[in-house]
Each structure stands twice: as C-alpha cells, then as structure tokens.
Design a protein around this nucleic acid. Structure first.
Length: 560
RNA sequence: UGGGGAUUCGUCUAGCGGUAGGACAACAGACUCUGAAUCUGUAAGCAUAGGUUCGAUUCCUAUAUCCCCAGCCA
C-alpha cells in the first residue's frame, strides 16, 4: 500500500503543466483561517497540497494563514495549526505567510482598481446593499454611489484607512455587473471597516480585505501556480480570475475538488466550535473530536491519517468516507507498530489452588508477534490473578470458548488452567472469585501431550498489577450522517456513550514505563496510548483506547 | 423558477468506444498461544429514457435526483 502512487485529476494537471512547459516549477499553498483547529477534512487538503510538493522535485507548498477577519481569529489557532501540520509530517520551511503580510500591497491593488474605474466606495448600508443585490432569479440594481469619481473614491478610501469612518458606513466594491447570474460578480465587497484589532497587525488597519479580493491576490503575490480549494468556491473562480486579469499580475489558477466528510462525526467548524464552547467536549483536542489534535491525543498515527487520505483520494465529487476505512488504516498501522501488553479492564479475581503461595515466576512474552525485532519482556505470574470479567461465564451460550466451570483454557504466555469452582457473594449472588488449578507442564502455554484448548485469555498478577484509569472512547455520533441542520439540537446527535471511564483497570507492571505518543496494544482488547494531558504524573496513569480490536465474537453476539 | 457542480457495488474509487476492476464494509470458510492479524472464497454497481455506433459506463440529446451560491464570513 505504501508504495502506491498518488493519482488524481489535480496531480494529472500538475504533471501536464510540467510536461508542457507551462510551468517550470509548481507552487501550491495550504491556506487555513486561524479561527479553529484543523480537522480530518483539512488533512485531505494538507495531504494534497503538501503531497504535490513532496512528490515533485520542482514543487513547493506554502503555508499561508488567511487572516482577514480579526473578529474570529487568534494566535492560539495559528500555533495549533502549525503543530498539527508538522505532526502530520509536512513542512513548509521558511515559507510561512499571512494574508495580513500583504495588507499594504492589497491596499495598493485596491487603489489601482479605483484608478482604472473598476472599484468604488459604496455608502449604502448593509440592508440596502442586500436589497440591491437582487435574488437568485432577479438581477440587482446599481448602487447610487456606483458612479462616484475616481478622485472621490480615492479620497474616501484614504479616509476609511485613516479610521475616519464608522464600521458599516462605507465599503469598497469592485465594479463588475449587478445583473450577473453569478451573484459573486454583482459588485462584490472588497473592503469593510472593522474596529477590531488584528492578532498580528494590531490597530494599524481599520479596514480589512474580503476573502475573494485577498485570497486570489495573495496567491498571485506568492506566485502560486495551482490554488486548490473545495467545490463551493467554483462560483468564485470568475471573480478570482477577474481581479488577477484587471491587475495584470501573476496568473494563479484555482482548481476545485470535492470536500471529504467522515461518517459518525461532525465536521463543520461552526459546530465543532459549538461543541467546545458549550463544553460538550473537553476542548479542541478532546479525543472524541475529529480534529487532528483530538485524533492525535486519542492515539491516531499520522501515517494512518495520511494513508486514509490517499485511499479516499481526490475527485470533484462530494463524498462521505466511512469511519471504518479510517479505523482500518489505523489498525493496519498500529498492528505493525504497537507493543503488546496484558491489561485487565474489568477485573475478576482468579486463584490457582495448586500454585504455591508466595511463588513468583517471570514468564516471557513477545513485545510484538508481528515484529521479531521488537524483543521480549518478562511478566510476573503468581497464585492470584485477575482475568477479564467477560472471559468467564457460568452458563455460557453456544460457541463461547472462554473460561467456564470445568473447562480448561490457556493463560496467554502462561499455563493451562481449569476452572474448579465459582465463589459468589452470598447476598448479591455476584461472582466474586474463580478457583482453578493449573497444569505445571504447560508452562509458557503449550502442553507436552499436545492437547489443545479452545481459547487463550489475558491476565495480570494481582500482587504485581498496577492500577490505571482507562478511558474507553467510542465514535462521536451514533448516526453515520448526523442531521445537524439549523435548529437541531447538537447534543441530540452525540453518542451518549462516547466515553466510558474505568477507574481501576489492572495492568502488567511494564506499563508503568509507558510514554505518551507510543501506541500499545492491550492484547485482545484494542490499541491504547497514554493520555498526553492527564498522564503527566507517573503515579496517575491514564490510558485512552484509540480503537478496539475487531471483535467477531461480539459481532455474532449482538446479531443474535 | 437564475447560475454553477455532481451522479459507477452499502461506502470510497478505477475506467477515456471493445469482458466494469480495486479497497473498506458485509457474508462464508481455513489458520491461529490475541475470537486479533493472516489466507481463501461469496454476494454486491454504471440514475432514467432516447440517439450515434458492429459495439456505449465512456460520445450526443433530454429527464430525474442531490449539492453549492442572495455575509460588510472564509
């Protein structure tokens, strides 16, 4: 899979442009607005833009923050975005830009357009502008201010820049065509007055450029050859080209592709912001969030996210990838990388009656059976163990292979044991303890006489186990495509069981040395990792379940 | 009802006039010291209707369905 070559219609265009000599080198850009954290949908765009740069010797990708709306943007987001892109494994070297770096140049472009008679200051209020824009089916009306003289426009714009006018009193508009069937061409606003300080330019600018004006010209300033964006900007392309053509500047080319959605989650920035602000999650990096930082904290590997983006590919279609594909990419990667460990989430005491009291043996276990170079470790074994509650049933259903009264099973890397007795609480009738015997000849897990057992279960030594908190995460939404249309209560689409906290899991002692960022497979349970936020103290271990192992037993159970 | 875009197995995707292929998911089986992994197999698709052609998923014409656009957001 790793050596599969990326191919899609955009990479085809890039290749052709290089082959035909249209461009000697290629420049793309990833243009986030720093008003939130990056999510899995952005990862697709990052992989596309930075991927093209990586794949072509003569290509580079700029990181440019589209910071033209100071009321929503801040440096926390800038820093988080940079960290996420780096973590995904991409780099932009010194090519870190901000649209706000170009405010002076952009202002110059605006003046040029006025001088050409292609822009004017409109003094209608917001309401009037909206009314005169017309509708989808009816053309708009020209503004009464549309024919102001060049001198007057220049003077007004200077005053706007000097802070002499109130927000909302004037805007600068391109003079295009109020009857265009494309609403974007009906004299789009280029500048508005805002008295909000900007996170980088402070109070130096009382006016801020709008996206359509700023974005394409920023591309042009950077000599971006291929400006890749999502389909909803297709209607904006005539405007993108209009600014570039009127100003006779470097011709960047905008190419649109379909956005990628993910099932069982929410991806719009507006709703993610709401989850954070309403404390429906613990923050932008809550492990349930589809953000890069949330996924990182959950235990996703960068490689698996990049693999996912590659497999979903880039087309002009609107698509929703199933989360199962993402999880497959994750498991595939973690299966190769994760060290194994034994951990019991819901402990059930098990006593081996014929095992000597006070004896401790250290049994060898493979760190990763999928990887011979991963080495082995030793796990303490003793008379009293914990096993998983789910691994014992007094009256089992058909096809239950685990421990039941009278049955022999294998303890992973340990011995064969046979259940002799079940001890229950006399009052509640709850199972308190299982009494077993072991076969000393099966040390390490194999019987010299060649007899087989139907199952192998995991365990930890009661006296040696360490305690930990384990957080079992599930998908954010139960519905594959949650309905979050306006007016819907966001909370109602959230999975009420997206987090189950286990306070006293019992882990094999080697897990004491875990470090965050390293995946671990708790055998037979799933992939876990140390929580990067709440596990800083070695005496207070917190593990997150990244993803469970596939479980065909659970599946047959639930389908019955 | 204006403009723009999309439509291939459940999902994602290949196809560029000549047997519709892959991945994930599903199902069945083999194997197994993880009911994992691995392996094998099964089922499943060209939105519809016309036309052009020896031959159409591919070209043409309609139709249908879905998505985007009326921010001084990006």
């Amino acid at each position: 899979m790793e050596d599969r070559i990326n191919r899609d219609f955009i990479r085809d265009i890039v290749k052709e442009d290089l082959a035909s000599g249209k461009h000697e080198s290629i420049t793309t850009r990833f243009p986030p607005e720093p008003n939130g954290y990056l999510h899995i949908g952005h990862a697709a765009s990052i992989c596309l833009n930075f991927g093209i740069a990586e794949e072509n010797d003569s290509a580079t990708c700029n990181l440019r923050f589209d910071d033209t709306n100071p009321s929503k943007e801040n440096t926390e987001f800038v820093e988080a975005i940079k960290e996420d892109i780096k973590w995904l494994g991409f780099n932009w070297d010194e090519r870190e830009y901000f649209a706000s770096d170009y405010f002076e140049k952009l202002y110059g472009f605006a003046v040029t357009l006025i001088e050409k008679g292609k822009a004017y200051v409109d003094s209608q209020n917001q309401e009037e502008i909206r009314e005169n824009r017309g509708t989808l089916t009816h053309p708009g009306n020209d503004s009464p201010y549309r024919s102001r003289s060049v001198q007057e426009n220049i003077a007004l714009l200077k005053e706007m820049r000097a802070g002499k006018h109130e927000p909302g009193s004037h805007v600068l508009r391109a003079k295009i065509d109020m009857s265009s069937p494309n609403l974007n061409m009906r004299d789009p606003v280029m500048y508005r007055i805002l008295d909000t300080p900007h996170h980088r330019t402070g109070n130096t600018w009382p006016i801020y450029p709008m996206y359509d004006f700023a974005h394409g010209l920023s591309d042009s300033i950077e000599e971006v050859t291929h400006s890749l964006c999502t389909m909803e900007y297709e209607d904006h392309r005539p405007l993108y080209d209009w600014f570039i053509n009127e100003l006779k500047v470097f011709k960047s080319r905008q190419i649109e592709f379909g956005k990628i959605f993910l099932s069982h989650t929410i991806l719009s920035k507006r709703n993610l912001t709401k989850l954070v602000e309403n404390n429906l999650v613990t923050g932008w990096n809550d492990p349930r969030m589809p953000t890069i930082s949330g996924m990182r904290r959950l235990g996703y590997s960068a490689h698996s996210i990049r693999e996912f983006c590659q497999r979903v590919s880039i087309t002009r279609r609107w698509n929703t990838a199933e989360i199962e594909l993402l999880e497959h990419c994750l498991r595939e990667d973690l299966n190769k990388k994760a060290h194994r460990a034994l951990a019991v989430l819901k402990p059930l005491k098990l006593v081996i009656e014929n095992y000597p009291e006070n004896q401790v043996e250290y049994l060898e276990a493979s760190n990763n059976p999928q990887d011979d170079s991963s080495g082995i470790r030793k796990i303490p074994f003793s008379r009293e163990l914990y096993i998983e509650q789910d691994d014992f049933m007094e009256t089992p259903p058909k096809r239950f292979f685990r421990l039941t009264p009278g049955r022999e099973v294998r303890l992973r890397y340990g011995y064969f044991i046979t259940c002799k007795e079940v001890i229950k609480d006399p009052v509640t009738n709850d199972i308190m303890e299982i009494r077993c015997t072991y076969d000393p000849d099966t040390r390490g897990g194999n019987a010299p006489d060649g007899r087989k057992v139907k199952s192998t279960i995991h365990w930890v030594s009661a006296n040696h186990a360490i305690d930990a908190e384990v957080r079992l995460y599930e998908r954010l939404c139960l519905d594959p495509e949650p309905d979050i249309s306006d007016g819907k209560n966001l909370e109602s689409v959230l999975n009420p069981n997206s987090l189950e906290v286990i306070n006293s899991a019992k882990l094999e002692p080697s897990l004491k040395e875990s470090t965050s960022g390293n995946p671990i497979q708790f055998e037979r349970l799933g992939y876990f990792c140390l929580d990067s936020e709440d596990s800083k103290d070695k005496d207070n271990l917190v593990f997150n379940r990244t993803v469970s192992l596939r479980d065909s037993w659970a599946k047959t159970q639930s389908s019955n």
